[in-house]
Amino acid sequence: MTKKRSPILRIILIFFIVEVVLVFLSGNFSKQLEIGFEHGKFRIRHVETEYDLQEKITEEFQIDEYYKQHGETPEIYGSKKLYNSFKFLSKFGTVPFNPMGTFQLLRMLLIVDIMLLIMALFIRKTLARRPAKSQIIFELIYTSLEEFVSETLGEDKAYYTPYIVTLFLFIWVCNMVGMIPIPGFMEPTRNLNVPLGLGFMVVVVVHFSAIKFKGAWNHLQNYINPVKNPLFLLDIVGEISKIVSISFRLFGNILGGAIIILVVSSLVSFVVFPIGLNLFFGVFVGTIQAFVFTMLALTYIGVEIAE
């Protein structure tokens, strides 16, 4: 039996060789190679580039600050009409704000929502008694998370599963969507507002379920009654720090990964090495952080309704 080499491996090998040649040709990191046709002849030449890393990072991560410094008209990746109507709406708010960063964030959130909706509709359409591949994957996700929920909260409280699965899928798709190489695409979780909102909603769900299972007065006594709970002040601070810790963990991981990918890929111009970084910081860290977020939410709920 002869071992067949797969065509993908061969393509990767060719890319690797081309890369190594290009890196040796370019020689200096401050220069960039320009390859193209000039006067009908193929030629390679060095181009001196003014590449400021600080400015690039500012453009990528603090888009409001960037356009405030440069004063240019913002380059709009989506629809111009949508942006103009959003800008018109932003004037009615109590606090005047630069709508560019908010518009980008809302656009990415909308894209994630549409992706999730399309996924749901597609899976629903292909439901069958003999499951297809996609159905198997989603049933696997659902049943394994349902198992965690019923392990932590008990069999009778398995109705928390839809919330947990929604949280996991939303954060997971948010972390994955930044890997699509389209200009202007970013992870919505890179902006602090999204994890902060998710963490706040987790704490709201925790207290709502505690009130539901223990009664409002019983639950409130943990935070106002010094006889029943001598450390009630610490508990109040602990509720705030819950929100901060759960949201800053997700935010810091995704932002740090994105900055590392940007810095490394600007240092090495022609190497496909950033794909490996994307594999680690995008796929691995993104999945782990989405999982950790949902597990922590589940643990908070479980601790509050245990008695």
């Binding site: 990072i57 963990r249 810091g252 782990i288 950790v292 597990m295």
Partner: peptide
């Protein structure tokens, strides 16, 4: 182990956030 490591990593992530704040 993975969940525990991600939780114990959070202090490092806080320092990363503070370092980014200081830089930018």
């Amino acid at each position: 182990m993975l969940v525990g490591q991600a939780v114990s990593e959070s202090t490092g992530i806080y320092s990363l956030v503070i370092a980014l704040l200081l830089i930018f």
